[in-house]
Design a protein around this nucleic acid. Sequence first.
RNA 1: GCUGCUAUAGUGUAGUCCGGCCAAUCAUGCGGGCCUUUCACGCCCGCGACUGGGGUUCGAAUCCCCAUAGCAGCACCA
Length: 486
Amino acid sequence: MYDAIYVKHEHRTVLPDLESAEHGVVMRFAPNPSGPLHIGHARAAVLNDAYVKQYGGRYILRIEDTDPKRVDPKAYEMVKEDIGWLGLGITETVTQSERLPLYYDLCRQLIEKGGAYVCTCDNEHFRELKQAKTACPCRDQPVEKNLNLWEKMLDHTLKEGEVTVRIRTDLNHPDPAMRDFPAFRILDTPPHPKVKAHVYPLMNFSVVADDHLLGVTHVIRGKDHIANTRRQRYIYDHFGWKVPVYRHYGRMGIEGVVLSTSQMRLGINEGKFTGWDDIRLGTLRALARRGISPDAVKNAVLAIGIGDTDISFSWDNLYAENKKIVDPVANRYFFVPDPVTAQIDGAKPHTAHAMLHPGDAARGTRTLAFEGTVLLPGREITPDVTMIRLKDLFNVKITWNGSIPTFSYAGDSLAEARATKAHIIQWLPGQESVHCTILTQEGEMSGACEPRVKEELGKVVQFERVGFVKIDAVDNDGVRAYFTHT
RNA sequence: GCUGCUAUAGUGUAGUCCGGCCAAUCAUGCGGGCCUUUCACGCCCGCGACUGGGGUUCGAAUCCCCAUAGCAGCACCA
């Protein structure tokens, strides 16, 4: 009884309900194939995906490639790879460049209905008229003339820059962005990589056409589309179509990375970045390369939700999500940064058995054989340090002669090490280790790691007292890893 | 400039629609402690916010107004 009263104060952890979704939804993710997907795309993709999963229905991937200037032929494949990595429940895929005839047909219908006209005014001139809330001469020409001009567009009698199909809206609308916005234009260059065409719809037209044709019921997109939603409503009204339910979430900035595809491309071309998966980039493939799990991205994005406030995406929150996923599965190994070789006097050969995972003994151990010398992290061996414990091995006493340390065996007792507050540090057998480079977003960390790390290629492991890393490459020179997070 | 949207701790978020249970949730971060053969994980304690000002009301994070700030759009991009 009281529970019901206090329910209001519970922390809601699921996304808010969508209206009119009780009987299932049809939603879509509609990227422009100009490059691989980044975190910004992931928000749209994951949010829509989550709602489709919640209510049931179809989830359409729609490739919006109606502007040949903004199409990178390689992006079609990259987008699909990224979606596969995210594990979205896409049920069907359509590509807009393959649907041009559908748009042409609808455009003709719209012209016949008087909802659109073919404008031959100069752009600058039209813009001035628009600002002045004045109709251009083409606006009132008869349907027949519009149809005739439309034919001339299609048969290419008219050339790029000479005509624009406009949607008839309201010239007195207080927002100039709403007034008779464009729907089609001619583009001769560059050629479209997928289709031979010269008449292309603008986003507002093709989106409405497809949302209607595909039966889209709900649209979740960024608030940069709010004005488009308003414009698109005019097209729905002209056709008498049912308008989907819209939700617009706020802008998302990300600390420290560029999200603009064109900026990233520029950086890659200039050699500033190594490629689309350069770990300094916010692309999904960069995150994957660094060992971020797709589920971590999903969880982080869902936690943000669909609020319409502008937010800044925090790496901390993503890392926390990722750690929850990766910590239980990552094997533990020793990595010694800036290694120094130390001979341990008075120590007999020992064999250390260290657990692959402290919380899962069943996973077994790794074996490290001590035969007289060890590699130690140089930074930890400073003159104020007189006793250390090599983890899973034994205690070592350090005596300093000026700045020259001498290492000697000091017993196996863990209790003793604790009593002296000796640091327990990671180490490697002097006779057996492999070179290892860890690449972080800030730079490189050089050191050595256990040979067995070579078997973890492609996986995320934890270097004890260093952090989680993804093993990116293994060769004769050693191991290259990307730093994931601490 | 015009049009519109938004405003809760360092970050994200719940609560705002339908005012009282909110001395404001949860997570992350940070500080401290415990546990531990990792500076990880886990556990405990703590820090930290309703943008400002008016108004309505017995009562405002919640409703109204103004201010301020941020954002978006005003493309033959999506």
